[in-house]
Amino acid sequence: MAVEFLERYSQGQSLCHRWPARAKIVLTLLVIATGTLLPLEYWPASGCLAGLALVGLSVADIPLGYIGRRLALFLPLVLMTALAAPLSRGFMGAWDTAAVIVLRSTVAFLAALWLVSTTPLETLLAGLCRLGMPRVFVSLLIFTLRYLYVLFDELARMKTAQRARTFQRQSTWRSWLGTTQLVGMLLIRALNRAERIHAAMMSRGWRGRMELLDD
């Protein structure tokens, strides 16, 4: 399934996997907060935090290749943001600021990756819930988690149907056009589904508060 990457390693059995979810959430938040709040000139400390996150990831048996692939998706976005600093000086300085932005983001990213790679999403949500995260956010995340799979399946089916009626290699332009139509249809279908889900929730007495049996 297309979204398996989300939870590929979260069901493991390592030491980190067995820690209580709340402790892991607090630790991750601490690392992120420290990493972002440290003054510019303390960058070696930020570097240490990144190292710490990497150690955590290796203790949790997360392969380096996987971390690398995740970073490869993440870093380009950060680099664009980081470049804004030198750009504002006409590329005549502020390169250190850019470097620190990249470093801090990497710390936050690695820490969060460690958290989601060592905690199944349901456990993570239950932990957030117990730490006092507002119910509305928890509900949103629960629905996102549940329907991500359904939407990806739907997208896969639509893509297959489209391919089944595509008879020759298409020009890039036409294939882009096809993709935009696909995304539009997916949005409409998702909206319709949302209405049906709402009806199903109302049928079972929904009163605006997501309750889970375990809290």
């Binding site: 349901e122 199903a200 049928s203 079972r204 309750e211």
Partner: peptide, 29 residues
């Protein structure tokens, strides 16, 4: 509470993360 409606597409009706949470949804509400 007295009229239980079951919809055509089960994915519309199973909106909780686990089977237990979903079956518990009505009674909890």
């Amino acid at each position: 509470r007295n009229v239980g409606v079951m919809f055509q597409d089960p994915d519309d009706q199973l909106f909780c993360p686990t089977v237990r949470d979903d079956v518990a949804f009505g009674p909890l509400n």
